[in-house]
Design a binder for these strands. Structure first.
Lengths: 351, 351
DNA sequence: TTGTAAGCGTTATCAT
DNA sequence: ATGATAACGCTTACAA
């Protein structure tokens, strides 16, 4: 509060003590008499003393704030993660500085530089879909800045990570489609280089193989680096619909891709699930209210946030440099609804 | 960056200058020779010097960070606002510390105390629905902390404010329903004390009066302070459906209330719009994909954010204390879709 | 048990 | 044009 400055010195003067005594009393040092402590504490609270965190930061050479960068706040998945992060950070006396890359590698760089120049104690990162050069992260990590990756991780940096079991999540979703009778399942997925993309694609392929369905690479489509999901999804859908042998189901692997595909299908009057089934990763809370109610893979975003910040604080508050890192894997959850109903005559009749 | 400390002193020593000269050179003071400036700048960039913002803050007695408190980040309306705020804050060298009240007055208090104790330069506030006691805001404002209210404002604090034209927004939505043939229009709205509630209710009443439709107070329902919108909406809907003379249309005045009402109606198999029309305030980007496509009042959230932060920076950076305050009013936007189609035989036949 | 003084990295004042 | 020094608010050796 720059507009008012009750300092330790005010207390010292009022009580005829030195600032160091006051400082020690406030921090409950054992070398201060109970009586002095009482007086100091009492007076401090009577004039509503608040320590100046900036002075403390300068002195302690840490800021008790951490940075988090995500691709976009206005995305339920990420905002839930941030919720999780904040909920524990605040309890532990840290504040959270939020930044978004908006899927631009350049903006990501700028934001990271901004965050680190603001003397953050640690960094939570989910990389942009355009990120190729990870040298800045490596450099920061090497210099000793605690970093925890979540969701979209950088494979070759050895630090704590939190991810969802993307492979299994995608595997189960694919198996579900297969069980429901779909065979030409298109995978509409993120940029190829992303960790989550590789994992989800692996899950998809594994499921197909397991059920003896040949994988048609023409059905696996990636968005372009830096591209925005909605238009990318529309372009992919349009291309898929234009090809000879159309898919009979779509598996989209992100919130925005899922809604992008849905929007395309509705716009072009393609019946779901009769002409095309649809399942997607989504953390939207209203997928059941969509037309049709959407089958989804939901990620435990809040938990991912709490886990990531806990790991980060562990790194930050560790006395000795940490050299043992772990990757925590959380389970995804599936909700199957009408958008992937089986294509049996039974249901068609019911309509 | 606590792990690395290139300071102004390192530069001074390397170049055989004093820290003050370096400091002045870096800030391009006119009393430093061009040659010295060149050398300093060059060396600074060669060793990647970054000024320590904490030291600057301590010295300047400001932190170049601002706080924003909203009820919930994971709400598209607020996350869009935050986007807007961030987009200009970053350009101006400020960072944004985000806090959420989760509609709890107590949590709001704690968060505000936390923010102000973190030496923020200014505060952006949309109050929780439970807030009655605004004395903390008054006190802070009196002490000179720049505050800008947005969305849910505190009426009797004289400072800059940004709101949407809630009255007109609600008026137009109500008129739309009336034109479509609905008469028993229920207003499912926020906590009674909230500024936005009063304004939206006023708009609703004005529209009804203008069209000569008597206002039935039994159709005006408020959520309870501290309550979460979704369950509140469900409770209100259930009560409305239980009453003698049911409404034929619902006008919900927030994102969550709108989806809450929709969820209730679908769950109870009440046909929209045949048995009940529905329109609501919403900033969700997928309302057109809902079943049925939803008519909405959309607020210019991003713009609200940019406006609010600009006003705040104006207060923060003003040389003299500002005494003239203004309230900026932005226009809401309407999208009318199937959920409020007129109840004419024409459309019923088409089904 | 308490006090003195140095220092965290800057900038501003006052010399030179 | 440049340098010495104090100060921002706090913590912590070191002294007393």
């Amino acid at each position: 509060m720059r507009y008012e400055a009750v300092t330790i010195r005010d207390i010292a003067q009022a009580l005829g003590l030195s600032t160091s005594t006051v400082s020690r009393a406030l921090r409950d040092s054992h070398e201060i008499s109970t009586e002095t402590k009482r007086r100091v504490l009492e007076h401090a609270r009577s004039i509503n003393y608040q320590p100046n965190p900036i002075a403390v930061s300068l002195r302690e050479r840490k800021s008790r704030s951490i940075g988090i960068i995500v691709s976009e706040i206005a995305n339920r998945f990420f905002s839930e993660i941030i919720n999780g992060v904040e909920s524990v950070a605040i309890d532990r006396g840290y504040n959270v500085i939020i930044a978004q890359s908006l899927e631009s590698a350049e903006r990501e760089l700028r934001q990271i530089q901004f965050l680190t120049s603001r003397s953050i104690d640690g960094l939570l990162v989910s990389v942009s879909n355009e990120t190729e050069d990870t040298s800045l992260f490596k450099e920061l990590h090497q210099k000793g800045l605690p970093i925890v990756f979540f969701d979209r991780v950088v494979q070759d940096i050895d630090t704590h990570k939190v991810i969802v079991d993307n492979t299994l999540g995608a595997f189960d979703a694919t198996v579900h489609l297969i069980r429901k009778g779909y065979r030409r399942i298109a995978l509409v997925t993120n940029v190829e280089g992303l960790s989550i993309t590789k994992e989800r694609e692996a899950g998809y392929r594994a499921a197909m193989h397991k059920h003896g369905i040949p994988v048609d690479d023409a059905l696996i489509r990636h968005t372009r680096p830096g591209g925005q999901a909605e238009p990318e999804a529309a372009a992919i859908m349009s291309s898929l619909m234009g090809q000879e042998d159309r898919p009979d189901a779509i598996f989209a692997t992100s919130d925005r891709l899922t809604t992008g595909c849905l929007r395309y299908l509705k716009k072009h009057n393609i019946q779901i699930p009769d002409e095309m089934a649809l399942i997607g990763f989504s953390n939207s809370e209203i997928t059941e209210l969509l037309d049709p109610p959407l089958s989804i893979v939901r990620q435990p975003a809040f938990e991912m946030g709490t886990t990531a910040i806990q790991m980060l604080l562990e790194l930050i508050e560790s006395k000795r440099p940490v050299t043992q890192f772990r990757t925590q894997v959380l389970a995804a959850e599936h909700v199957f609804r009408q958008s992937t109903q089986s294509r049996d005559t039974e249901r068609v009749k019911l309509r």
